[in-house]
Simulated assay, not measured.
Amino acid sequence: MTAAQQQDLQTQRRLQQDSIQLAGKTIYINPFLYWRRFDSNTDRWLREPGQLSEEQIQQNRSRFYPELEWALLDERDQEVKDGAVEMFLKSLELISTFHPELTSGQILEVERKMAITKKRSFERWVEKSYRRRSREETKKKRRFARNRFLQGWGEWIALDTTHQALVPIVALLVLSAVLGWSYGSSQSSCPTLVPPQQQTGVR
């Protein structure tokens, strides 16, 4: 099998996981395959966790994770799986919007296949989203701290009392520099005494 054939086979397998055949139509269960039909608000709504209410997510936990004991999960795992539940709900809403002809039974088939094939994918996506958000928040905090530091220095320098305190300090520094330069110049202008050479000879 050639490399091109292997790539085609992988694409077909991925497409099988990302779609389902219903009434002779191919329905994508990967929500990102609808991105060409998104506007910017829908794209942001899909990609950013935390767009649905906490109550709505908690009510649907057992719907997509019937095997889990949520009370036994640590905070991080619970956060990731809640994000995956949110992705399930968003995906089903998008599919219903783009395929209004689907019956409730067909939507249930979509949901079942999605729960089997997309669970881990959604969890990985949520983990990446949280890491990206954490990095962005860290950058914002550093930028804010840097701007606040510079602003504080600027405000301090602009104070009249600061000017009054800095003037004698600057004058002292200038005077010290002038005195140091003058002393160095006087030292370099003094002649250097060279002792006379002793005459040597053989008597």
Rank of each mutant, 00 (worst) to 15 (best):
Thr2Leu: 03
Glu67Thr: 09
Gln7Tyr: 06
Asn60Thr: 07
Arg44Ala: 09
Leu73Lys: 10
Glu48Cys: 15
Ser40Ile: 00
Arg36Pro: 05
Gln16Glu: 09
Glu79Ile: 07
Tyr28Leu: 02
Leu46Asp: 08
Asn60Met: 09
Gln17Glu: 01
Gly24Asn: 09
Glu67Asp: 07
Asp82Gly: 10
Leu9Lys: 08
Gln10Lys: 12
Ala23Met: 09
Glu54Asn: 10
Glu54Ile: 09
Asn41Lys: 15
Asp43Ile: 13
Lys81His: 11
Arg44Gly: 04
Asp8Lys: 04
Gln51Lys: 15
Phe64Glu: 01
Gly83Asp: 04
Gln51His: 14
Thr11Pro: 06
Thr42Asp: 05
Asp43Glu: 15
Arg37Val: 07
Gln59Trp: 08
Tyr65Ala: 13
Asp8Cys: 06
Gln59Pro: 13
Arg37Lys: 12
Tyr34Ile: 01
Ser19Trp: 02
Ser19Tyr: 01
Leu68Ile: 11
Leu52Ile: 05
Thr11Ser: 12
Arg36Trp: 13
Gln51Tyr: 14
Ile57Asn: 03
Arg47Ile: 02
Asp74Met: 11
Asp39Tyr: 10
Lys25Phe: 07
Arg13Cys: 07
Trp35His: 12
Arg44Thr: 09
Leu46Pro: 12
Leu15Val: 05
Arg63Ile: 08
Gln59Ser: 12
Tyr28Pro: 06
Gln10Trp: 03
Gly24Cys: 03
Leu68Gly: 05
Lys81Tyr: 14
Asp18Pro: 02
Glu48Asn: 15
Ser19Ala: 07
Pro66Gly: 03
Thr42Tyr: 12
Asp43Phe: 12
Asp39Phe: 10
Thr11Asn: 14
Trp45Asn: 12
Asp39Ile: 12
Gln56Tyr: 14
Trp70Leu: 01
Leu22His: 00
Gln59Leu: 09
Lys81Pro: 10
Arg37Thr: 12
Arg13Asp: 03
Gln78Asn: 14
Gln78Phe: 15
Gln12Glu: 13
Tyr65Phe: 15
Tyr65Ser: 08
Arg44Asp: 03
Ile57Cys: 01
Glu79Arg: 07
Phe64Lys: 02
Arg37Trp: 06
Ala23Val: 05
Thr26Ile: 04
Ser62Arg: 10
Gln6Trp: 05
Leu46Thr: 13
Asp77Trp: 15
Leu73Glu: 08
Phe64Asp: 04
Leu9Val: 10
Gln51Val: 12
Leu68Thr: 15
Leu22Gly: 03
Asn60Glu: 06
Ala23Arg: 15
Leu33Phe: 04
Lys81Gly: 06
Pro49Gln: 05
Leu72Phe: 09
Trp70Thr: 04
Gln16Cys: 02
Gln58Phe: 04
Leu72Met: 07
Gln7Ala: 13
Leu52Pro: 10
Asp43His: 13
Gln17Gly: 07
Ala23Cys: 11
Gln59Tyr: 06
Glu48Thr: 15
Arg14Met: 00
Pro31Leu: 01
Arg14Ser: 08
Gly50Leu: 01
Trp45Phe: 11
Trp70Asn: 04
Asn30Trp: 01
Arg13Phe: 08
Leu68Met: 10
Ala23Thr: 15
Leu73Phe: 06
Gln78Val: 08
Ile20Met: 00
Asp77Glu: 14
Pro31Ile: 00
Gln6Lys: 13
Phe32Ile: 00
Gln17Thr: 06
Gln7Val: 06
Ile20Pro: 00
Leu73Ala: 13
Arg61Glu: 11
Gly83Ala: 02
Leu33Tyr: 02
Gly83Pro: 11
Gln78Arg: 09
Arg61Cys: 11
Ile29Cys: 00
